[in-house]
Design a protein around this nucleic acid. Structure first.
Lengths: 249, 249
DNA sequence: CGCTAGTTTGATCCGGGTCAATGCTGGTGG
DNA sequence: CCACCAGCATTGACCCGGATCAAACTAGCG
């Protein structure tokens, strides 16, 4: 819960530097293109667009950007998982969202980032400097619209999360979280019984407003009750019916 | 907390019908024009825009629209206060935001409203049927941009609220809520010591994830501690310093 | 002047936080 | 190949803040 290990942040990462940069060359083969904002660009535009971005790779805990700093770039996650969070003076960390491959982040209302973002696991992202990005987008009405759609969906998700953060019981929060993660990862509404959880327990807790101990205990309780099976980096759903009923409560 | 008085909703309001409608005639004198999305429209465009909207008035508890229903109109609040909320099967109501005069609501990512909205007090709003509204916006790049800005700000506020909903102490939540309400109502960052609270205790509780009893008790405790003075429909700030320190914690 | 809806206040209880010890696992070097 | 270590996860013991239930109070308002 408390996240006072700010000193642990790698010095090289503090300034929002990525570990490694390389040109974007094979956007056409990009696995997330179809679900990303760039899907509206044609072959020609895509080449231009690729020219202004760089692929950046991040190791766990590497920082993409920090709350309060001037917005200097926007990001499109292509692999891995980014945690979006706010740090409170008390030392608490509230995770305000996860960015999965295909998600677009980093365009707040003002001049400064409204939250921090770091890599939860090994992660890669297309990084676009704000000035060139803004210039490129300026004329592309459809791209602008796509970005707006992304923001609107983020808003909807934010409201979902508000409901989760409210005064609900821990088991209901966890159940809803699991189902939410599954829905998020698979466009097809009905999908595998295996839900992958790339993030750690601490992340889940800071997302739901629970302590790490309660997350662990609750998962275990759900397992004992036969709703799920806890496996490394995820859970297997055994009783979807009951899990959904619990999540709704 | 529980909000099981669904039956209390006035039948006429259930379908999202407003109480009273009249043409928009004096947009130029509209007190919220300068802060609304319509501020980018010139005199001529404004006249056109006014033509497609109607002023609707709502009494407390009257419903603007309901979650899950097809989006048939968007709204611009001009007076009063709207509660934006989700109802859970358990009967809990999570207020996901308040809409003050000048706020624009009702454009979710999909075809259906993602939350319900009703009037917390006597309220008026400009109501624009979705089809004509969409057609009008289509060509107005700047209006579209303004709407996008509105969504981005909503998103930022939603994240603020997530932080409030997290595992914070009741007094910190209340303090932050009071300061947030003050900042929201007065563009000038420094302002009066009088914070108006048009909404009821229940609304505050459902917004912060607290019971009505705790809201009441906490306000009283802050009063005893000399931070505020509770007055009808609001509070008076006595010790801003300490209130801010408490809100930050 | 009583009615109703909202608010305050009290008494009790419990879910989940906190703290701390223990367990697990994957990486590292002897 | 194994012993060790660091980081994360689990589990236990205890406690407290806020939920819940219920009663008293207040203020509009017909």
């Amino acid at each position: 819960m408390t996240f006072t290990e700010l000193e642990n942040i790698r010095p090289a990462a503090r300034a929002g530097q990525s570990r490694q940069l390389q040109a974007l060359d094979n956007c056409l083969e990009c696995p997330v293109r179809s679900i990303s904002v760039c899907s509206v660009l044609d072959r020609c535009e895509l080449a231009q667009f690729a020219g202004i971005g760089r692929a950046a790779t991040y190791r766990p805990r590497d920082i993409l950007f920090m709350e309060g700093f001037p917005v200097d770039a926007v990001y499109n996650i292509t692999k891995g998982l980014a945690r979006l969070y706010r740090l409170l003076p008390s030392g608490h960390r509230q995770i305000v969202g996860f960015a999965f491959p295909g998600d677009f982040i980093g365009l707040p209302p003002g001049e400064h980032y409204g939250f921090s973002a770091d890599a939860a696991v090994a992660t890669t992202a297309c990084r676009f400097p704000l000035d060139t990005f803004a210039a490129f987008v300026e004329s592309r009405q459809d791209l602008l619209r796509r970005i707006h759609d992304s923001a609107t969906r983020d808003l909807e998700r934010a409201r979902d999360q508000m409901v989760q953060l409210g005064p609900r019981r821990a088991d209901a929060k966890i159940a809803a979280f699991l189902l939410g993660m599954r829905r998020r990862r698979s466009p097809v509404h009905e999908s595998s019984v295996l839900i992958s959880l790339p993030m750690g327990r601490q992340d889940i807790g800071d997302y739901l407003g629970l302590s790490i101990a309660t997350v662990s205990r609750t998962l275990h309780r759900l397992e004992r009750a036969g709703l799920i099976l806890v496996v490394p980096n995820g859970v297997r759903v055994l009783d979807r019916q009951r899990l959904e009923r619990l999540a709704a409560a």
